[in-house]
Amino acid sequence: MTSRRRLVRELPLYLMLAPAVVVVLIYSYAPMVGIVMAFQRVLPGRGIFGSPWIGLDNFAFMIRMPNILQVLWNTIRIAGLKAVAGVIVPVAVALMLNNVTSQAFKRTVQTIIYLPHFLSWVILAGIFIEILSPSGGAVNLLLGRVGIEPIYFLGDDRIFPWTMVATDVWKSFGFGAIIYLAALTDIDPTLYEAAVVDGAGRRQQTRHITLPGISGTIIMLSTLSLGNILNAGFDQIFNLYGPVVYRTGDIIDTLVYRIGIANFQYGVATAVGLFKSVVSLILIGIAYRLADKWADYRIF
């Protein structure tokens, strides 16, 4: 086929792509060009092309920030804890649901536990700030009845990271459980029949058939969460934190927001953001390679 005929035949495909390509060039690729601000002292009104170059000064400033290591550690700690809990709880719940014989009961529980996934962190923050309040919040009132002093779930910097992990699990475990439940129902039933014939008990079936049957999904999802180790959950933390918990609760994304949007230090904020993007990209690369190797997973 001549290249001319080929082009005519492929023309509709290019037409289909055109609007999206324009949007993505402007709003995804142009900001990548804007990364040069990380190497500039960005002056208001002068923009990307008018601001003076200052080499790596913004990065030097970033490294000298007194809280930068703490923020990095907070990010990794909260994201890591969420990732671990985000595998264990949904897998356990999926296994429990899989043991339920009453379809009506199973459906009811599923309907309730999936719902929080679809609510925004703004709404959930409103709810959690209310029920976790140390002065009259429902949770502390209940704890008070068994003689426990009010706990500052959102105001005590030793407890705050755990509150983030717990509320994140609360929001997402139901949705995570569906994925594992789908993997469980894909297990070949004849494997169980064969196991019964061989005299395997229920525990042995779980150990030798059920868990290996979903291990691919578990490995795939846990590996992919490695790419998110610097994403500790901006939406959640931004809506729930405050200066009293910066010591343990401030993460890279909230720091970038405060430096950039609140304090207009565009150069430094871009530098911190770039640091995060590059580290994340490397981790995603490693994660996809591992997921491909261990679980035969590819995005395309």
């Binding site: 492929e10 390509v21 142009a30 900001p31 990307i48 871009t270």
Partner: peptide, 27 residues
């Protein structure tokens, strides 16, 4: 569609890497 691979990456890269908050805001 010979350019399929190119365009697939063209879009997927935007998920993997971004300019970050400030450049996005400025654009």
């Amino acid at each position: 569609f010979r350019a399929r691979g190119f365009f697939a990456w063209f879009f997927v890269i935007t998920v993997l890497f971004s300019g970050g908050l400030i450049p996005w805001y400025m654009v």
